[in-house]
C-alpha cells in the first residue's frame, strides 16, 4: 500500500537549490565602552591628558565575531558638564599596538549639546578589517582650554559612551 501511495503520490515543483541562497545575517548591537572623568580630574590635568589609557577589548578580534562581521557602525556620544573645552580621541589598536583607526571628537565646554559621532565600517564606510583586527581601544582626552573648570552643575564630569551595531554573516 505504501508503495502504491508513493507511486501515485505527486509533488509540486520544488527547488531545493534555494537552500544555497539562504542568508542569515543578523544585526547585533551592544554597548562597548563607557568612560567617566570627574571635573576634579579635568582640573588636575590642565596641561596634560585628562586620560590616556588603553583598554583591552577582544570582542571584535574573537573568531566568533571577526570571521562573521560584514559591516556596522560604532557610535560615540560625549557629554561634558564641565566648563573646560576638551578634545577626545579614540584609537582602535591591533594586537601589536598599531593604530588602525582614529576618531577625534572636539568637545565644547558646558553648556553643550550631547555630541554624537557615528563611524561606519564596511561597504559604506571605513575598512571592516579595522574592526576585525581591533584588539584594544585607547582613549585620550586633553583639556585644550587649559583652564580650571568651576561648574555649578551637581556633579560636573566628562562622559564618553559608545556602542556598536554590526551585521554578521551566520550562514551564506
Amino acid at each position: 500500500m505504501l508503495s502504491c501511495l508513493t507511486l501515485l503520490s505527486c509533488i509540486e515543483d520544488q527547488d531545493f537549490d534555494q537552500f544555497d541562497e539562504i542568508g542569515v545575517t543578523p544585526t547585533v548591537e551592544a554597548s562597548i565602552l563607557y568612560v567617566e572623568a570627574p571635573e576634579s580630574l579635568v582640573n588636575a590635568s590642565t596641561q596634560a591628558n585628562v586620560i590616556s589609557q588603553e583598554f583591552n577589548f577582544d570582542a571584535f578580534s574573537s573568531n566568533v565575531f571577526s570571521k562573521r562581521v560584514l559591516d556596522g557602525t560604532i557610535t560615540y556620544i560625549v557629554e561634558n558638564t564641565t566648563e573646560s573645552e576638551l578634545s577626545v580621541s579614540i584609537e582602535l589598536l591591533d594586537v601589536d599596538g598599531n593604530v588602525l583607526d582614529t576618531v577625534i571628537i572636539p568637545v565644547a565646554p558646558a553648556p553643550m549639546e550631547m555630541q554624537q559621532v557615528d563611524v561606519a565600517y564596511g561597504s559604506s564606510g571605513r575598512s571592516i578589517d579595522i574592526i576585525k583586527n581591533t584588539s584594544s581601544i585607547r582613549v585620550e582626552a586633553v583639556n585644550i582650554s587649559g583652564t580650571q573648570s568651576a561648574s555649578t552643575a551637581a556633579e560636573p564630569k566628562v562622559i564618553l559612551k559608545s556602542s556598536g551595531k554590526f551585521r554578521l554573516e551566520i550562514v551564506q
Partner: peptide, 22 residues
C-alpha cells in the same frame, strides 16, 4: 546586566595593567 566596559575615573586608573575586558 552589562553596559560594556565601564571606566570610572580616577579609581579605574589606579592599576594601568587592569584588564577591564577580561
Amino acid at each position: 546586566t552589562i553596559e560594556g566596559i565601564e571606566i570610572i575615573l580616577p579609581d579605574a586608573a589606579a592599576d594601568p595593567n587592569e584588564d577591564f575586558w577580561q
